[in-house]
């Protein structure tokens, strides 16, 4: 049983608040991703779970034990670090064996357990090499092997792919997903890369300034962002956000007018829509303004307008051509729109 609960967890350094009233219930075998920009408190939260950072207030419960006062080694967790944290003087085999050695696991079991971890991380050809003789991806696989070798109840992964190049990141990401599904171990994964979060997570926790912004499945987060921060953080490109006024179901902003929205709310709102949901039209578009830029992305083209203070982009087919400054129209049906309160940034339920 490796249910992990964080109840009213706070972390403060003097007057600075690192993590603010964090509440979360992570189910057994769940893959949970903490996502947010640098300095949002996601790594601090993970370090508190690991026991590498003291909790100022609140409780961390692992299984049925409050682990606040336990040493990291007594929490039955393992952790993978961004810079691998390998022992440079030990070989791959000895690195993976290290947790067994220091935890006094009977020696006769070591070889079988280490070889199994080596096999799962596909490191058979490198087991006698030292970390300095390995590539970044191989080093991170050694760190993964060391994490899984003693079958902990929780895996903690602190931006494990950040030091890898883009190509290696994709393959190692797939490997992590595969390993977690095989091992069925509760995993908490920290990243600032929303693609990693979307592809790996059962649930994503979006954080900003030490606070949870939204908790949900990747689809929930993408389709129903709880506020403008989540809307602008998730998705590539980020959701378009245009400020304007809503009156009688019609949103009016600079260079944009969308009808058919719910008639209930009114006043200053922020309208959001995804670039891939809108389309370029010849006439009758909700946006009609001079084009600011056109970028060829490979599989599509990105058309951008400047509407008031905001840049608004939509994706269209890669053959589309227009000159900068040409008036281009785009269809923004009400069905693809999200409304947020401009003052608070919170989502307005439609």
């Amino acid at each position: 049983m490796a249910r992990l609960q964080l109840k009213n967890v706070n972390k403060r350094w003097g007057s600075f608040i690192g993590v603010d009233n964090f509440n979360l219930d992570i189910a057994d075998e769940e893959f949970l991703v903490l996502l947010g920009p640098s300095g949002c408190g996601k790594s601090t939260t993970m370090r508190m779970i690991a026991g590498l950072e003291d909790v100022t207030d609140g409780e961390i419960i692992l299984g049925d034990r409050v682990v606040n006062d336990l040493e990291p080694k007594d929490r039955d967790i393992s952790m993978v670090f961004q810079s691998y944290g390998l022992y440079p003087n030990l070989t791959v085999y000895e690195n993976i064996r290290f947790p067994l050695r220091v935890r006094k696991v009977p020696k006769e079991k070591h070889d079988e357990m280490v070889m199994k971890a080596i096999h799962m991380t596909e490191l058979e050809d490198f087991m006698h090499r030292r970390p300095a003789e390995l590539s970044g991806g191989q080093r991170q696989r050694v760190a993964l092997g060391r994490a899984i070798v003693r079958k902990p109840t929780v895996f903690l992964m602190d931006e494990p792919l950040s030091n890898l190049d883009a190509k290696l990141r994709v393959s190692t990401r797939a490997q992590i997903k595969n390993l977690q599904s095989k091992l069925k171990t509760t995993t908490v994964y920290v990243t600032h890369d929303q693609i990693e979060a979307m592809t790996l997570a059962d649930r994503v926790v979006v954080m900003n300034a030490g606070k949870i912004q939204q908790v949900g499945t990747p689809t929930d987060i993408y389709d129903m962002p709880a506020n403008t921060f989540v809307a602008s953080f998730i998705g590539s490109p980020a959701m378009n956000l245009v400020e304007g006024a809503l009156e009688g179901g019609t949103f009016t902003g600079e260079g944009i007018r969308v009808e058919g929205l719910p008639t209930g709310p009114s006043g200053n709102v922020t309208l959001g829509f995804r670039a891939e949901d809108a389309e370029i039209v010849d006439t009758g578009g909700q946006i009609s303004a001079p084009m600011y830029s056109i970028e060829l992305l490979g599989e599509a083209s990105m058309i951008t307008w400047r509407l008031g203070g905001a840049l608004v982009s939509i994706k269209t087919n890669k053959e589309y051509r227009a000159e900068i400054g040409d008036v281009v129209q785009a269809s923004i049906p009400a069905s693809i729109c999200h409304l947020f309160d401009t003052a608070s940034g919170e989502r307005i339920a439609l």
Binding site: Q82, L86, P88, L156
Partner: peptide, 12 residues
């Protein structure tokens, strides 16, 4: 990171 991973691994 290496020191902390040793702590998590169970090293005294």
């Amino acid at each position: 990171d290496t020191l902390e991973s040793a702590m998590v691994d169970g090293a005294t």
